[in-house]
Design a protein around this nucleic acid. Structure first.
Ligand SMILES: [Mn+2]
Ligand SMILES: [Mn+2]
Ligand SMILES: [Zn+2]
Ligand SMILES: [Zn+2]
Lengths: 144, 144
DNA sequence: GTTGCGCCTGCAAGCTATTGCAACAACCTC
DNA sequence: GAGGTTGTTGCAATAGCTTGCAGGCGCAAC
């Protein structure tokens, strides 16, 4: 069994163990997210899945992504391009700084937010789910 | 001149001074955002404006909000209800912690993010625009 | 007050994403 | 393997928001 198929199977087992049905649609959507080396959109997942399973509907893609999000198997982020992108959670967490002027995207490590997370837990009794943020602003190379 | 009209006029002057045209639509949209005591949606602004100016179109509301956002006259935030809400910037900045289980919304002061802002500027040369965040997670009263 | 430039708007079409519903099929039981 | 339960899906309608375009109107110049 190849690595990619093994990973897809494992995540599928997570669904099964939690009582969710393991449909061909779900397996293909999971595989598409896992196979993506970066951030993949619902439409991109849809066209990949449709190549192997033409009958599938885009609403199933959205519903499945919602399920996977709720189970913390994927993270979602809005990089400001008018559509949301998804990321397989096991591939590691990180955040993005997006310059509104020049469009540059700077990746930052997730532990940058640890102090904030701790403060929110200690002072506000709140467990913040900070795994894939997009923060807008201006890089210092851009004037004004 | 009443307070509300005065404020609307002042913000309008900002537009004029920057070379933007002061249309009735823009003045009414600005007034609606300023008059709101909390977070107002585009649809709510639209229906308020339409009461005085029936000819207006919803796309003008969105375009104007985009303009005001770019000029830092209003802030925008997505509280997870399927539509974005707006806030007059001069009324003060704050952030929201939203429990995904019970729906509770905890307001937090903006200076909670000052350490993070400083780190981003110092270590990543990035001026983060952190004025109206919504952070999702779980309040500690909610199990699991 | 009139004129003219060009920013702004209404309109309609389009895009991403969500939802109600009836049919379908995954999975458990026998 | 057959049958039944119920979670899941496809479909179509819908919601929120955006965009291209042609005409309208704010504003400055005279
Ligand atoms: Mn990412
Ligand atoms: Mn707020
Ligand atoms: Zn930049
Ligand atoms: Zn809660």
């Amino acid at each position: 069994m190849k690595g990619k198929e093994k990973r897809a199977k494992e995540a599928g087992d997570v669904l099964r163990e939690l009582g969710y049905r393991l449909t061909p649609q779900r397996m293909l959507i999971l595989a598409a997210v896992q196979a993506s080396d970066s951030h993949i959109s619902a439409e991109e997942i849809y066209s990949q899945v449709r190549a192997q399973y033409p009958h599938v509907n885009i609403s199933t893609v959205y519903r499945t992504l919602d399920l996977l999000k709720g189970l913390s198997l994927v993270t979602e982020t809005d990089l400001g391009e008018g559509r949301v992108r998804y990321h397989y959670a096991d591939k590691g967490h990180h955040h993005h700084l997006i310059c509104e002027r020049c469009g540059a995207i700077i990746d930052v490590d997730e532990n940058l937010f640890l102090p904030l997370k701790r403060t929110l837990l200690k002072d506000y009794q709140f467990n913040a789910d900070i795994r894939h943020f997009a923060i807008f602003g201006r890089c210092t190379k851009c004037p004004r």
